[in-house]
Amino acid sequence: MRNTEIGVCVIGSGRAGMIHAANFRRNVPHASLVAVVDPNEAVAKQAAESLGIDTYYTDYKEALKSDNIDAVIVVTPTIFHRDIVVAAAEAGKHVFCEKPMAMNANECEDMIAAAKRNKVKLQIGFMRRFNDSFIQAKEEIDSGAIGDVVLVRSLTRGPSIPQPWMYDLSKSNGPLAEVNSHDIDTLNWFVDADIESVFALAGNFRCPQAQAEFPDFYDNVVLTARFENQKQGMIDGAVSVKYGYDSRVEILGTEGVIFIGQVHEKTIVTANRNGLTRPVMNSWRTLFSDAYLAEDVHFIECILEDKEPKVSGNDGKKAVMVVNAGNQSIKERKEILLSSVLAVKA
């Protein structure tokens, strides 16, 4: 590393990639955005221009050759995560990888091993752990404010139609991965135990355009989980709901309950002859903007202070295993033990 300023390259110039890029360009202390990568040259060039930087690449392998880059932010389709992260680690670059971490447990283990072998940091993008409300909820759980946690219910519903590649579960692992990875990590974090088994139900109710070519694609899913300590979890996930972006959590304890989130963006309510109106949250980019910045700041701190990220590769692997087990449960219509998923992938 050249000095105390970390040169950052964002690999993937889509919506989430540009959130991270803008943070590192202007708002993260001791970090400098030096390049962006996208296989579509027009997209890469436009991203660089909008960010006010000179360097862009269409091949991440070329970016990894640069001595000006100390760390990379991987924000590509999930199927590419393993190869990019391993290559970056082998090149001596620290890695922030957006969720979902990878396609299966084996890929996660490859990424964890590469980071360890090359002595670089690996952080996974579960930004809800950096949201003030989630942090406070975790503190209250740990303080015993609601007694022992019994059940965590977490839902995420998105308004937009999935990108075409997401319909193919062999490339995306479906909404359980793309939408509900955050919910899975929320359950793991708040219960503070490993999930033992899951049972999931799913269907395609709003995306008829995917049914012919991708009959296994689902836009609505419900997953129940049993933890090794017998605590309970429930996840509700949906895409293309159209009414807005919806993220809420309920944590039930032996002596109380904690609620996080609301569907409304603001507290204002307007009433007139047409009835009541209240603004609805329209995007995850709005709801979690501060959390995205906080996790980016944390990543740079971990590099400079040589400390382990709060969200590790092992955390990412646990979520991926639940995704794989959930998809297997949907297909086989039965409860799936996570130990059997790991055995199959090994």
Rank of each mutant, 00 (worst) to 15 (best):
H94F: 05
H94M: 06
V95G: 06
A102K: 13
M103R: 11
N104V: 06
N104P: 04
N104K: 10
N104L: 10
A105W: 11
N106S: 13
N106G: 13
E107W: 01
D110T: 06
I112Q: 07
I112E: 09
A115N: 02
K116M: 09
R117P: 00
I124Y: 06
F126G: 05
R128C: 08
S133P: 00
F134C: 13
F134I: 05
Q136N: 11
A137N: 00
E139C: 05
E140S: 06
D142L: 10
I146N: 11
I146D: 05
D148H: 06
D148Y: 03
V150M: 07
V152F: 06
R153L: 14
L155T: 13
L155N: 15
L155M: 15
G158A: 15
G158V: 15
P159M: 05
I161W: 13
P162K: 01
P162F: 00
P162V: 00
M166E: 15
D168W: 02
L169A: 05
S170D: 14
S170W: 06
K171F: 04
G174H: 05
G174R: 02
P175G: 01
L176R: 05
V179I: 14
D183P: 00
I184F: 11
D185F: 00
L187K: 04
L187D: 08
W189T: 11
V191R: 04
D194H: 07
I195M: 02
E196S: 11
F205M: 11
P208Y: 02
A210F: 01
Q211M: 10
A212Q: 12
E213Q: 14
F214L: 02
Y218G: 06
Y218D: 10
V221Y: 03
T224K: 04
A225Y: 00
E228R: 09
M234K: 08
